[in-house]
Amino acid sequence: MKTRIYVTLKNGVLDPQGKAIHHGLEGLGFTGVNDVRAGKLIELDLDDSVTTADIERMCQQLLANTVIENFRIEPVAG
């Protein structure tokens, strides 16, 4: 079973990397980009015995720093 964890910065937390990407896009001449936020995608290959509560704990304890980041758990179909 594969599960994807999306880790993103909380609203209001400044994202210097997102800002740099934004400037990069503007430098290439792309217009209309209002804001860029960069995050992480972590893909886990899990035994069927692993529960959603287990994954939640993995996120809380290591995969995300909940001081500055949010996480979203998304099972991958197939």
Binding site: L14, P16, Q17, V67
Partner: peptide, 17 residues
């Protein structure tokens, strides 16, 4: 120490990168 929860807050990428 911040990651371990022994001190509050977090240290992020320098604003200037």
């Amino acid at each position: 120490l911040t990651e371990a929860g022994m001190l509050p807050g977090a240290l992020m990428r320098n604003a200037t990168l």
